[in-house]
Simulated scan of single mutants.
Amino acid sequence: MKRIVLAISCVCFLGVATTQAQSILDQAKKTAGSVQGSSFDVGGIASSILGKLTPALALTSVQQPKVQNLLTGFLKKKAAILPLQQSNPSAYTSKFGGLQKGIFSKLKTLLTLSQYTKFLGLKPKTNDAANVLSQLFY
């Protein structure tokens, strides 16, 4: 009788422990998903990049909205391919290279030669999350 009660107690304990562990895992996945989704705010990132580029490149009032539109379009397209960065890095690199080439060629026609040269000089040495310009280069 004692063995039966002990066996039932063990099964109940293991069932509860497994359920709690699964619940914690599910919460962690939800949190990771919401953090990843919210960390790429296209409008906010575009504004931050423009805030850095405007004084660094001495953008005119005519250039600013055009650069803002280019940045927003680029970042929306980048957001669409971001899942590939984890699941298929080579596909991400290939697609990102095309996006980057596109925005750089458009910036080249929008900016003066000296502004474009300064822009390329702003490239961070590494992909630094603290430097918003990394979004354009990495």
Score class of each variant (00 low, 15 high):
1 M>V: 15
2 K>L: 09
3 R>K: 12
4 I>H: 05
5 V>Q: 12
5 V>N: 08
8 I>V: 13
9 S>L: 14
9 S>D: 12
12 C>P: 02
15 G>D: 12
17 A>M: 09
19 T>W: 09
21 A>L: 08
22 Q>P: 01
24 I>T: 05
25 L>D: 05
25 L>F: 05
27 Q>I: 04
28 A>F: 03
28 A>I: 03
29 K>G: 01
30 K>Q: 10
33 G>T: 13
33 G>Q: 11
34 S>I: 10
34 S>T: 13
35 V>P: 01
35 V>H: 04
36 Q>G: 06
39 S>W: 11
45 I>M: 04
45 I>K: 07
50 L>I: 03
53 L>A: 04
59 L>G: 04
60 T>Y: 02
63 Q>E: 15
63 Q>A: 11
66 K>P: 01
67 V>W: 00
68 Q>P: 01
69 N>V: 12
70 L>D: 06
75 L>M: 07
76 K>T: 11
79 A>W: 01
80 A>N: 07
84 L>P: 08
85 Q>W: 03
90 S>V: 13
94 S>C: 10
95 K>G: 03
96 F>R: 15
99 L>S: 10
99 L>W: 11
100 Q>H: 13
102 G>Y: 06
105 S>W: 03
106 K>P: 01
108 K>T: 03
109 T>S: 13
111 L>Y: 03
111 L>G: 07
111 L>N: 06
112 T>E: 03
119 F>I: 00
120 L>Q: 15
121 G>A: 07
124 P>D: 03
126 T>I: 07
127 N>H: 14
130 A>H: 09
131 N>Q: 07
132 V>F: 06
132 V>I: 14
133 L>T: 06
137 F>Q: 04
138 Y>T: 12
